[in-house]
Simulated assay, not measured.
Amino acid sequence: MKKRWSVLAALFLTAGLTACAGTGAEQTQSAAEPPSAVETEVQTENQAEAQTGTPEETVSASGEGEMDTAKPQEDRAGNPITVPEEVNSIISLAPATTQILCDLGLADKIVAVDTNSPQYAEELTEDVMQFDMMEPDLEQILNAQPDIIFVSNMSSQGGDDIFKSVRDAGICVAEIPTSNSIEDVKEDVRFTADCVGMPEEGAELVADMEKVIDEVSAIGQNIEEKKTVLFEISPVPYLYSFGTGVYLNEMIELIGAQNVLADQEGWISVTEESAVSADPDVILTSDNFSNEDPVTEILGRTGWENVTAVKNGQVAYIDNAASSLPNHHIVDALKEMAKAIYPEEYAGLE
């Protein structure tokens, strides 16, 4: 449990303290950073999509509305890549990406993963190789001869491209920085699916996301009395949460509530004193590593007795994997959050 906490803590600390640099296994762009060239390009594409339709549906020489099957020429970090026409052997060094690949039905093509992926992807074969995402064995990776490797920045905290020898060997290394917005999460899913030649299936995963988001948004926009919410990523004494510029904050707003830390940006350490003084109406937690029963722990905290959420018993656990891995499963967390914050309003949400 402690090892798992250290990895997850590193993931969220990375999310809050690093910008888009290097290659590794769970990268985030700091919310305090100005938009990069890649972000600007994505925003421009999104504006164009609002007028002309989604990028998956294009007019080709063979007909209208056909799915664009061209492989990406840049990864999500803006690095030029050459994706093989056929992808039959995959290494995934990011749990969020591993889940996407498994949900695309490609578990049997995954030859290696990071050591955290198996706990989030039961479909993986028992003999799949595992690498420490912080120090992957490059020799073994080269020997595995994958067609493509999916990474993000947990494997290169120093900023160096530790996969240079792999790239130089002609293997496609595709970097997917951990996204801070729901829209970017959708793009990550599409990108992964496009790389493995399954754009239609990727589009379906995104469409399913959008269906849930639209359903929640339709209810949330009509909620007038907004509850305030504190979402604990880790508990006291190392309380960690987020402000604006994080997809979880977007989710709170979609539901019709307000993040008590919305006056701050990105992933943040929070003092116990400031959390208590914020007096949230609801406290959510995804802590599954430090306490067997995180809800009971919060309700029993000394000095929190007069916090509205504690006083009224409005404390709920949100699935850790669904809320912490930025892929299409965030909508599972969205539904849990909605029902926890406004149980009556979202009673009919399936």
Rank of each mutant, 00 (worst) to 15 (best):
K71I: 09
G53A: 03
A107G: 06
L106W: 00
D114L: 07
A107M: 05
G53T: 06
A77R: 09
T125Q: 15
I141K: 02
A112R: 01
V111N: 02
T69E: 11
E66L: 15
S36R: 07
V38E: 13
V59S: 14
P95E: 10
E41P: 01
D108L: 09
I91H: 06
S89Q: 08
S60W: 00
N46G: 04
T69S: 09
E126N: 12
T52W: 10
E66P: 04
I81W: 08
A144T: 09
E56K: 04
V42S: 08
A94Q: 08
A96R: 00
A94T: 11
E86N: 11
Q99H: 05
P95G: 09
A144F: 02
D127N: 14
A96Q: 02
S36G: 14
T82G: 12
V38Q: 14
A50M: 11
E33C: 05
N46M: 11
Q145L: 03
P80Q: 10
S117V: 11
D132R: 08
D103F: 00
L142M: 10
S36A: 03
D137R: 05
Q73F: 08
Q99Y: 02
G63Q: 06
P118W: 03
M129V: 11
Q119V: 09
Q130D: 02
P55E: 04
A96S: 15
P72W: 02
T54H: 04
T54I: 12
P84L: 08
N88P: 05
S62K: 13
I90H: 00
E41S: 13
A77S: 14
M134L: 14
Q130A: 10
S60A: 12
P35A: 10
S60T: 15
M134S: 12
I100F: 01
E56R: 14
V42C: 03
E66D: 12
E74C: 05
K109R: 11
D103L: 01
E41V: 11
G63K: 00
V87S: 03
S92F: 06
E86T: 12
M67P: 06
E122V: 09
V87N: 01
N46D: 15
M67W: 13
A70Y: 00
P72N: 08
T69Y: 07
V59E: 13
E74M: 13
E122K: 12
P136C: 10
T82V: 08
D75C: 07
V113G: 03
E85T: 05
A70P: 01
C102S: 11
P72F: 04
E39Q: 14
K109D: 06
G53S: 07
T52F: 13
A112E: 01
Q99A: 06
V42W: 15
P55Q: 03
G105F: 04
